[in-house]
């Protein structure tokens, strides 16, 4: 195809958008809403899992060893703990150190009787888990190790946050999927309307020997431009929205939040790609259908 006809087709694509501006605006509106919702779900998911991670770091699980385990045997058990998939670190917590925590409670005299060989506490490990949602499985695995007697239960906050994280991730996934399909549908419908508005021209194009791929181009351009405009607007809105929400929530729930600017580039990239893809795909789907059926004949001959 020559350069001039490509220029012509691009011009046609923009003209179509303008002539069909109500539909164009409506589909940009729906697309922007879809993208902003998707982006919000993403920001929420990123922040919740970040909070879970930071709580998880502080959330040290204590693993108690059997009473008769010597310090040497404990080293060996520590190695086995660290071998487990989900364990980031296992720090030895000897009973001599543990008893010191009780010094004030016990009083000097009792404490003296409980040091050395008379220490009633077991040796222990402080372990940090990589993924708290696998907490139960990891505990089971740890209990299987010879010499491990019990494991402290984790904190409630971590537990709730973990299940919240799972929920948010799941929900985001379905929201993104559903909104993606809605966007495709909207673009396909808009392009279909434009195509019906141009059925006469398309019919003439086909009677003078235009190929289907040539007929398609202005409509694909229209779809892609709608997608790009929508992702541009959505990026701006998402930035404003997430900054506003974070500054509002910060005072009530004092966590470290990830601001939009920290994850801006991947999100901008993803939105632009999504805009182009949805636009191109949506229009291609409806053009293909149109050219196969109604548009395959010379109109009213």
């Amino acid at each position: 195809m020559s350069f001039s006809s490509f220029g012509y087709l691009i011009k046609e694509g923009f003209k179509n958008m303008w002539n069909n501006r109500m539909m164009t605006l409506a589909s940009i509106g729906v697309l922007v809403s879809c993208l902003v919702l998707t982006g919000s779900a993403l920001m929420l998911s990123i922040n919740v899992s970040n909070i879970v991670d930071s709580v998880g770091d502080k959330n040290v699980t204590t693993v108690y060893l059997d009473d008769d385990i010597s310090e040497l045997e404990a080293v060996y058990i520590g190695k086995n703990l660290e071998k487990l998939d989900n364990i980031t670190t296992a720090t030895f917590y000897p009973k001599d150190e543990a008893i010191i925590a009780y010094k004030d409670v016990l009083g000097e005299e009792v404490f003296e009787n409980m040091t050395g060989d008379d220490n009633p506490l077991p040796h222990a490990y402080h372990v940090v888990m990589d993924d708290l949602s696998k907490y139960d499985d990891t505990v089971k695995a740890m209990l299987k190790i010879d010499g491990v007697s019990s494991v402290s239960s984790r904190s409630d906050v971590a537990e709730r946050l973990t299940s919240l994280n799972t929920l948010v991730t799941m929900m985001s996934f379905w929201i993104i999927l559903a909104l993606g399909i809605i966007s495709l549908f909207i673009i396909a419908n808009t392009i279909r309307m434009t195509m019906y508005a141009h059925r006469f021209e398309i019919s003439i194009m086909k009677s003078v020997g235009a190929t289907n791929s040539f007929v398609r181009i202005p409509f694909v351009i229209e779809g892609v431009v709608i997608g790009l405009i929508s992702s541009g607007i959505a990026i701006g809105l998402l930035a404003l929205l997430s900054n506003a929400v974070i500054s509002a929530v910060e005072h009530i729930l004092p966590f470290e939040y990830i601001p939009f600017s920290d994850v801006m580039w991947p999100i901008i990239g993803a939105f632009l790609v999504a805009g182009v893809l949805v636009g191109a795909l949506g229009s291609l789907v409806s053009i293909r259908r149109y050219l196969k059926h109604e548009g395959n004949e010379i109109l009213g001959w």
Binding site: S2, S5, Y8, S203, M205
Partner: peptide
């Protein structure tokens, strides 16, 4: 006739050439 009403006579004729990818010149 099947002419496109919003195009001029010139544009209607040129349209057939554009459709098969002819150069502007």
């Amino acid at each position: 006739f099947r002419l496109i009403s919003k195009m001029t006579v010139y544009e209607n004729v040129a349209f057939a050439m554009r459709c098969i990818g002819k150069k502007n010149a």
